[in-house]
Nucleic acid binder design. Structure first.
Lengths: 152, 152
DNA sequence: CGCGCTCCCGACCAAAGTGGTCGAGAAAGT
DNA sequence: ACTTTCTCGACCACTTTGGTCGGGAGCGCG
C-alpha cells in the first residue's frame, strides 16, 4: 500500500510536461525542475512513452511532450504505466480472488479499496494538477484535518 | 499500490480467529482453514502478537486468540501491523513531502488517496467480516459494477 | 517428573522489486 | 560531420517478498 519513488517521479515529470504545453522539453530540464536523478528519469520517461503517455524526439531540439491533452491524462494512467495495475492482491486482480470460510466478504473490501483509489487517481488529471484546481471531491477529502493526521 | 500476500493472509487468519470466539485456535487449524503455508503463517501471527492484535499460549491446549473484541479491530490495524504505514510515498508520510513547481498540488492528491484508503480499511472490523455485514459505505462502493471492472 | 504439543524466533534462501548508474548506440538538427 | 538528446540493455547494491528449516522455550497432562 505504498507509492514508489518511480510513480511519484513519473507524475511530477508529467505535470511539468503539462505545464510546458506544446514544445518538446529536454529530460535535463525536467530532472532539474523536479529534482529527479536524470538517468533514472530517462528510464521512467521511456516507460511512459511505451505506454503512449508521452512522445519524444532526439537531437538538438529534441525532448519530451505529452501524447494527449493534459486534461485527458489522469494520475491513474501514469501510475499504471510505471507500477502496473492498481490494488492487486497477491498479484491478482481483486475480482479474481476466491476466499473460503470466514474471510469470504474480504473480497468486497479489496474491491472497495480499489474503487476508492480509483475515485481519486482516475479523477485527477494533469491539467488539474498544474492549474492547482483539483476536483471538488478530492479537494473535500484533502480538506479534512483528519486526512493530514499520522496513523489516526 | 498493491496488497501483499502477508497482509491478505493476516486479515484472513484474524477473521478466522474472530469467528472462533473465545478458545485458543491452533496455527495448523488456521492454516488449513484459509489455505496458508503454516510456517509462514506463524511468522505473521507472531507479528500480530507483537503488535497487540492477538495473544497466544503454547503447549497442548495452546493456540491463538484475539487480544481485543472483534468489533474493535479494524482491517487497517492488521494491515499496518504487517505492512507498516499505509500510503507512504517514497517511504515518507504524505504530509511530510514537499513539492516544487508544477507538482505542488500533488501532495493533496496523496493525502486524498490515504484518506480514501482509510475510509475503507479503518471502517471495516473483523466483526463485520465474519458477520458478512459490511458498513453501508463500503457495501455501496462494492455494489457498483464499475468497481468490479478491470482497468476501466 | 517427563513428555508431547505448540508457539517462538532467528537463520537461511531464491526470486523479484527499488532506486539507481554506466555506456554504447541511433535519430535529429545545424 | 558533429553535437545534442533520446534509446535501451546491462549492471549494481540493497530491500522486500514469500517462503522453509531447525532448534528452543513454555504449557498442560498423565
Amino acid at each position: 500500500m505504498r507509492v514508489s519513488a518511480k510513480a511519484d517521479y513519473a507524475v511530477r515529470a508529467a505535470a511539468e510536461l503539462a505545464a510546458a504545453g506544446e514544445g518538446p522539453v529536454k529530460g535535463g530540464v525536467l530532472a532539474e525542475a523536479q529534482d529527479i536523478p536524470l538517468q533514472f528519469l530517462e528510464h521512467i520517461l521511456l516507460e511512459l512513452k511505451h505506454n503512449g503517455i508521452v512522445r519524444a524526439r532526439r537531437g538538438a531540439k529534441g525532448g519530451y511532450w505529452l501524447a494527449k491533452p493534459a486534461d485527458e491524462v489522469s494520475v491513474a494512467d501514469i501510475v499504471r504505466a510505471v507500477e502496473g495495475p492498481i490494488a492487486h492482491v497477491q498479484s491478482t486482480p481483486p475480482e479474481d480472488i476466491e476466499y473460503r470460510g470466514n474471510s469470504e466478504p474480504l473480497q468486497k473490501v479489496w474491491i472497495a479499496v480499489r474503487a476508492n483509489l480509483r475515485a481519486v487517481l482516475e479523477e485527477v488529471t494533469l491539467a488539474d494538477l498544474v492549474s492547482g484546481d483539483l476536483p471538488t471531491s478530492v479537494e473535500a477529502l484533502a480538506a479534512s484535518p483528519d486526512a493530514w493526521a499520522p496513523r489516526s
